[in-house]
Every structure is written in structure tokens, then in C-alpha cells.
Design a protein around this nucleic acid. Structure first.
Lengths: 115, 115
DNA sequence: TCGAGGCATCGACAATCGTCAATGTACGCG
DNA sequence: CGCGTACATTGACGATTGTCGATGCCTCGA
């Protein structure tokens, strides 16, 4: 039912508790894993790349729904997960919902892999 | 169900810019997602960080098993997943199995997040 | 005011996951 | 040889996941 992962740490400014830079605490591991888990699905990765590839930097569900061979409800579900993971933002404008990448979210994640 | 009537291309349908450009292919998305999924678990992230933090760059199950509050079988299971994902290597030496990071695996993943 | 389009949410389902205890396998040492 | 250690594998389980169809909620335009 209700997802249990309540936590959002919207912005962990603590740039990186890098995976390769010292032993991760329990909390750090959970926070990082939550974001990696959100990217651990092909459909969600394609959603991210579709949004990133748009000219305006955002896309509405109607477009994404056409590109991915998934039902509208499923696409909405995936987008919600990406928002909750702090990777996307949702902006309602008129009739449409526009999704855009959270600036720096990917880079922060990337930096957690290098250090 | 689908209406047969020829539609008129309503002008207002252009709600957003067309999604084009470098989108992930199905295979690319699956390959990337598999690796991210492997990192989408706190226990596995801690395993990675524990191994990365070792002086020699490798660790055996007995050490890791003590650091994570998990059964030996579970640790072995997680390590197997990380090996299968291409993030760790396994080397049997005598009585022990030593796990080490695959050089460059993390960086490659990190680079996939920046582009 | 009504109808239709865009989207989120719900309920259900099979599939997969994380975990454990128990068992199996290989090695090293008396 | 027989025993103990280190690890892998198995079988089972509850929990979570990805997906769908159906339904509900807004917003817009006629």
C-alpha cells in the first residue's frame, strides 16, 4: 500500500558520501540506495533520458506515454517514483503536468560513485 | 473502441515540444538499469564501500559478514549479485574468496549520469 | 453547464526481491 | 582419514515491485 519510504531528504547537500570513499553508515547507504533503486528500472531510465532530451527540458505525460509502450497509469506511477526520489520535479500547468530533471541531482549521484 | 473517424489534428494538441534526440534504446536502458538495480540496496552499497575501504582493495566474506548484520548466506548472495552486475570480481585463494572492485566500473556508471 | 481530455490513484495480479536456516562443497590441518 | 573452517547453494517465506484496467479528480472549451 502506502509506500513506506517516507523519507525524502529532498536535497542531500552533503555531497556525497561516496561509495568508494569510506564506509557508508546505515543511513547514508539507505539514502543512496533509494536513489539508485529509482534508476534501477529500464522504463524509468528511458523516461529520464526522454525528458533530458527535450528542447525545453521538460515533458508532459502525454508525450512520454507515446514513446514508451506502457499504459498511462504506469507512466504516471514511474514518474511519481522519480519525483519522490528527488530526480524529477513536477509542475502542473493548465491541463498538463510537466516533468523536468532536478538540476544537479544526477551529477550528485555521479559524484558519489567516483570519489 | 478506437474511433474510426478521421481526426482533424487539433491544433491544441501540441502541448509540448517533441521528444527527440539521444534517447536510450531499450537495450541500453536495460543494461544500465541492471547495474543501478544492483546498487539499489543498502546492504550491497555497504558491501561495496567496505571493500573499497580496505587497504588491499579486497576482502573476504568472513570480514564482510562481521561488519554487516546479516547471515553469511545473505552476504554471499549479495556479493554474487554484485559480481554478476560487473561491479566486483571474485578470486578464490586457498580457503577464502576475495572480492574486489572492478576497476573503472563505478566511473563508467558515473559517466553515464553526467552526459 | 456539460463533455472531453490529461493525469493521478486504486485494486488486483504475477513476478521478483531480501532474508534466513539448513544443507552442500571444497580446502586445510591434525 | 576425519574434523573444522570458509563459502556457495537451496528451499522457503513475507514483502515489495511493475504492470494493467478501471475509476476519480481537475481543467479547459463549447
Amino acid at each position: 500500500m502506502a509506500t513506506e519510504l517516507t523519507v525524502l531528504e529532498p536535497v542531500s547537500t552533503s555531497c556525497c558520501s561516496p561509495v568508494t570513499g569510506g564506509v557508508l553508515s546505515d543511513a547514508e547507504a539507505r539514502s543512496l540506495a533509494a536513489r539508485f533503486k529509482a534508476m534501477g528500472d529500464p522504463s524509468r531510465l528511458r523516461l529520464l533520458s526522454l525528458i533530458a532530451a527535450t528542447e525545453s527540458g521538460e515533458a508532459c505525460v502525454c508525450d512520454l506515454n507515446e514513446s514508451l509502450d506502457l499504459s498511462q497509469g504506469t507512466v504516471s506511477h514511474h514518474l511519481g517514483i522519480l519525483v519522490k526520489a528527488g530526480l524529477l520535479t513536477r509542475t502542473k500547468r493548465g491541463q498538463w503536468s510537466f516533468y523536468a530533471l532536478v538540476p544537479g541531482a544526477m551529477s550528485t549521484l555521479a559524484r558519489a560513485l567516483d570519489a
